[in-house]
Simulated assay, not measured.
Amino acid sequence: MASAQGVSLSGDGRMGLIYDGDDIRFTSRARVTFTLSGETDSGLAFGGSFRADNASNAASGSAGNVFISGDFGRLAMGDVDGAALAAVGDLYSVGLTTLGDAHEMNYIGRLLGDTINDEDDGVAQFSGVSIPSLFPRALYSYSIDGFSFYASVSNPVTVRVNNATAFNTQTGLATSNGDSLGTITEFGVGASYSIDGFTGALGYERARANPASVTGLDSITFGHLAASAEYSMDGISVKAIVGRAMNDLKEIIEDEDGSKTQYGLGVSGTFDATTVTAFGRRDFAKDRYLGLGASYDLGGGASIKGGVVHVSPNVGSSETRADFGLAFTF
């Protein structure tokens, strides 16, 4: 009955072992996803999806998403990717658990909280603040004849002090816990084109922290330009990604002995029921990641998966993580 009314259920699960660099432990989970769909009298499609474990956040727009689509394209809101990420993407993941998402590139939405909130490595005038979720984000996309265009904007959020002592020490301003410092808004554009197995993509994203309501604080702009090239043929895919930090983000990274350029290369090959994936990347902090994984399709939605990731940080000792087990889709 639920399916007939535009609500369907699906799920995923896993069971296995994970090595976190120190200990071997079990990893297990089961999740249910609700997928909603409908159509207006004029032919517009609409719907959404969210996981059962994220139901409360989906109700506020910080998890899951809803959309409407037609000849004009597709507009989605909620926990959706920014335009640069939607166009350029990440490298191929490895392992049963994706091993800390080591295949993911640095995008502003992922960097923003770490860049500003870290009192040692972040922006001095913004250290000791709290940044709420940028969701719900809005993402518009349009595709025609192999060409896709993306545009996104985040929910404008208020930056508030959450550590008055740290903030006052670094700025000399008389602020209190909970004081508003202004707003942050993130926006982006991206495009991709696919032809004969080749896909090229370009994305630009920017976030502006505007503390205009507080005397003595300057606005800060985080810019990021990313590009990718991917080629697939006979079950083998190769993808390269490069990103360049811009504006104040570049200066922050270079001040911390980082690099204004990040890059990565990934390879994936499928041979009968076996898929092998590998990647290598270096992020803005000059941390290096190498990953290798494989999966074997057992049929019926079950597969055997395993992977190894080696992390070599610019500062500190390197570590190796690994996992192995069974993955299920329902």
Rank of each mutant, 00 (worst) to 15 (best):
V157W: 03
A166T: 15
F149A: 10
S154F: 11
F147T: 13
A151S: 02
F149Q: 02
A151I: 01
A166E: 11
S148L: 02
F167C: 00
F149R: 02
L173F: 12
S154K: 07
V153W: 08
V159F: 00
T175L: 14
V153H: 10
N162I: 12
F167S: 01
V161P: 04
N168M: 13
V157D: 03
A164G: 05
I144M: 05
G146V: 10
F147H: 09
F147E: 03
N168Q: 15
D145S: 14
V159E: 02
Y150W: 05
P156V: 02
Q170F: 09
R160T: 15
F167W: 08
T171R: 00
V161W: 08
T171C: 01
S154L: 08
S152K: 02
R160N: 15
S154I: 06
V159G: 02
L173N: 05
P156F: 06
Q170K: 15
F149G: 03
G172V: 06
N163F: 14
T169R: 10
F147D: 05
T171E: 00
T175R: 14
A164R: 07
F149E: 02
T165H: 05
I144L: 06
N163T: 08
V159Y: 01
N155G: 03
N155T: 07
T171H: 01
I144F: 04
N155Y: 07
T175I: 14
S154M: 11
N162K: 04
D145A: 14
A151L: 01
N163W: 13
S154T: 08
P156N: 03
D145Y: 12
N163L: 05
R160I: 15
P156C: 03
L173Q: 06
N163M: 08
T158E: 12
T175S: 10
T175Q: 14
R160M: 15
F149M: 05
I144A: 09
P156T: 03
I144R: 06
N162Q: 13
S148I: 03
V159L: 07
A166L: 11
A166F: 07
R160A: 14
T158N: 09
G146L: 12
D145Q: 13
A166N: 11
V157F: 03
N163R: 06
Q170G: 07
P156Q: 04
T158C: 04
N155F: 04
T165W: 07
Y150K: 00
I144C: 02
N168L: 13
I144S: 10
A164I: 07
T165A: 13
T171N: 02
V159K: 01
S154G: 12
A174R: 09
D145W: 09
T158M: 11
T171I: 01
V161Q: 06
T175Y: 11
N155S: 10
S154H: 09
T165D: 12
V159A: 05
F149N: 02
S154R: 06
A174P: 10
